[in-house]
Amino acid sequence: MLVLLKALAAQAHQWRHGYDLMKETGLLSGTLYPLLMRMTDQGLVEAEWREPVQPGRPPRHAYRLTTQGLELARSATDRADAPPSKAALA
């Protein structure tokens, strides 16, 4: 989930497509879609049908983080980047 949060947070205000997220994160569709579904259910991600860039293609489902999702992504990234505490090193 962290890798997906990071990928979505990297371009927080941009709508992202499932296949592009798969390629960027290295997640397989069998992992990505359950994560997206769960995160959408929890209000971390919003999903929307977007018109395709290329004409003649069907609309695509696109995703981006909500404010709540963005906060979670920031706190998760901070936690991951923070140096280990003394207690943890002891």
């Binding site: 497509h17 569709s29 069998g30 879609y33 293609r57 695509r60 489902h61």
Partner: peptide, 23 residues
């Protein structure tokens, strides 16, 4: 429907079976 629309992209990129199996 989202999976179906992304399937078309996966097919164009030559990975339809892996994508569909994952879905």
């Amino acid at each position: 429907l989202a999976m179906q629309s992304e399937f078309d992209i996966a097919r164009a990129e030559g990975r339809p079976l892996a994508f569909a199996a994952g879905c």
